[in-house]
Computed example of a mutant assay.
Amino acid sequence: MTKPALSESPAESALPLLEASQSWLAYLVTERRLSPNTVEAYGRDLRQFLAFLTEYQGELPTLQSMVALGPADLRAFLAARRREGIGSHSLMRQLAALRSFARHLDRSGLGNAAAFAAIRGPKVKKNLPRPLAIASARAVTDADSRASEDKEPWILARDAAVFALLYGSGLRIGEALGILRKDAPIEGRNEVTVTGKGNKTRTVPVLPQVSAAIADYIAHCPYALAPEGPLFVGAKGGPLSPRIIQLAMEGLRGALGLPETATPHALRHSFATHLLGRGGDLRAIQELLGHASLSTTQNYTKVDAARLMAAYDAAHPRA
């Protein structure tokens, strides 16, 4: 008489789901070529969802239980995250991660988790970009604006050079800090190639004033910058953290009386808005910013229109 097969333990039943999650993350890196930060965030989003399911269902989730989920289960998860104080933008990203994982299961022949496509995401209020005034953006890129701070001159020069790149070339902070020393746009080099979202590269022009700021930083930097190493380094010579630049901007907000919306990323917004306000071509600005969709760049036309209407309301006698 044949002995009945032993039933799998809960941990063994959950193993295929763990393997599927690992293959999905590998797919995001190798096929989608998402940035390491995005892959890490997506992995964290999935782990949080699986932890919720474990408590919600009273057992470790499996491939079978994932496929069997209904819209009500997903709404329960979103409601639980809401109670934890998670905002709509974060919930939308988390839902996007879970939908990506569900599509991976379907592509891999592991099951069709249809509920993820059927559930509606939370409504997100679309805020327009908040650029700085031209005079404020210029002041941010001037090392003398922080002369009163107890910082070494080379650090002030470094931060000013980073800010100059963000405003002068419309870079994201990660793109600026990813530039290697050998690619520094100095000594007559008037462009730089950066790696943006989706690991896509683009080449952007660099103004002479920006090149001069970078050259000034390099001249004062106390560390020997290796050609294959980062152009911008921290106080101890290691790669510069974006948080340091964010803190530098916070200091400038107080010194220059700037609003809370004055962040390093606001310099990128300022780059696009000021170009558009002076007749810049929308398609060209899209390429400079590295936007995949023109609709994203078109948000800056709304900013410009909003500023025109504000000026009209403030100045026109019949407004």
Rank of each mutant, 00 (worst) to 15 (best):
M1D: 02
M1I: 01
S7N: 02
S13L: 14
L15G: 00
Q22Y: 01
L28G: 10
T30H: 08
G43Q: 07
R44M: 03
Q48Y: 03
F49W: 13
T54V: 01
E55F: 01
G58L: 04
S65R: 09
V67D: 03
V67P: 05
A72S: 15
A72F: 07
D73A: 14
A80H: 15
A80D: 12
R81M: 14
R82S: 14
R83E: 15
E84Q: 15
L91R: 13
A97W: 09
D106P: 00
D106V: 03
G109Q: 08
A115M: 10
K123E: 12
K123N: 11
K125W: 12
P129D: 10
L132P: 12
R138A: 15
A139N: 06
D142M: 06
D142S: 08
S145P: 08
R146I: 14
E149F: 12
D150N: 11
E152D: 14
E152N: 09
A157M: 09
A157D: 13
D159V: 07
D159P: 05
R172M: 08
R172Y: 06
R181L: 02
D183L: 05
A184I: 11
N190K: 13
V192K: 04
K197Y: 05
V204R: 07
P205E: 08
P208T: 11
V210C: 11
Y217F: 14
I218N: 09
A219N: 12
H220Y: 02
C221K: 10
Y223A: 03
Y223D: 07
P227Q: 11
P227A: 10
E228T: 15
L231C: 13
G238L: 08
P239C: 11
P239I: 11
R243P: 10
I244N: 12
Q246V: 09
A248T: 06
E250A: 13
A255S: 14
L256R: 12
G257R: 11
L267Y: 09
H274P: 04
G277W: 01
G279M: 06
G280Y: 05
L282E: 02
A284N: 02
I285F: 02
L288T: 03
L289W: 06
H291M: 05
T297M: 00
N299I: 03
N299L: 14
V303L: 01
A305H: 03
A306G: 02
M309C: 00
A311V: 10
A314L: 05
R318V: 01
